[in-house]
Nucleic acid binder design. Structure first.
Lengths: 142, 142
DNA sequence: CCGAATCCGTCGCGATACTG
DNA sequence: CAGTATCGCGACGGATTCGG
């Protein structure tokens, strides 16, 4: 029945989201999408990231087959990361999502502002939880 | 330059991901997408969710303008949630992603299996962290 | 240069109990 | 029926330190 079809999509999507949705993995993927990079190159391309976080993100992406890790024989030896074929194929649906997000962002921000500007109605939270949402949202490195 | 364009997409996408990527919100959204539902209806449609988690997810979706909350005057009174216009528009790019995920899921699982089946190479983790990934991935309510 | 290993603070989440 | 309030744990992210 219908439920079955939906649930498979749900699961597949959740798997995907779980992979990308931690704090850095998605950003790292985008930083790596244009061209291969070495470890510390990536670290510079993603300001604010820790070695630990970068390693975790790369391992995660590598495990899912999204990026490939290659040892380059130079002096001193280095490691080069690049997005794989399947990783590139993921870019397309991601771009669709990104375009939607860019277009709808104003509407979303407006909805957020409207929602936040009525502490009476059924607002339970003491506005402490909402604070970070906004700051994170507005953040744009220009 | 190019970097600027990319960064805006990154930010917009990250905002979107941050909204959907917590444990339940995305699932709740899908459960609500087909038709409006009341609170406890939703709770039954999303097995395993807590009242608290459901409330949080709904508040979050409501804040972003994705769902609407409506008080229905019956006896006893109830609350009806439904996805808004902007929420429905989000379904389209999400479907693109879902279709990709469904198609690529076998490849992803294969890559994971291959990655996990070489504890020697540069596997650092004691296979403890990997366990949950797999179980979560395989999970499908049939 | 490329990580691994450890400690530690924070927060999401679940379980439970209570309200109108 | 539709939530709110509180508690406790476990996972996650950040900072730091050590190794190949």
């Amino acid at each position: 029945m219908l439920e079955q079809v939906i649930s498979s999509e749900v699961d597949a999507c959740r798997v995907l989201l779980d992979q990308l949705a931690d704090k850095w993995t998605f950003t790292v993927f985008l930083a790596l999408r244009d061209q291969p990079h070495r470890f510390n190159e990536l670290r510079r391309r993603v300001p604010g990231i820790t070695q630990k976080a970068l390693t975790q993100s790369l391992r995660r992406l590598e495990r899912n087959g999204m990026v490939s890790r290659r040892i380059v024989e130079t002096a001193p030896p280095g490691v080069e990361y690049s997005v794989s074929a399947i990783g590139k194929s993921m870019s397309e649906p991601l771009d669709v999502l990104a375009q939607w997000a860019v277009r709808q962002l104003p509407s979303i921000l407006a909805a957020q502002a409207q929602f936040d500007s009525r502490p009476e109605s059924h607002a339970h939270s003491d506005a402490a939880d909402l604070a970070d949402y906004d700051t994170v949202t507005v953040r744009s490195r220009f």
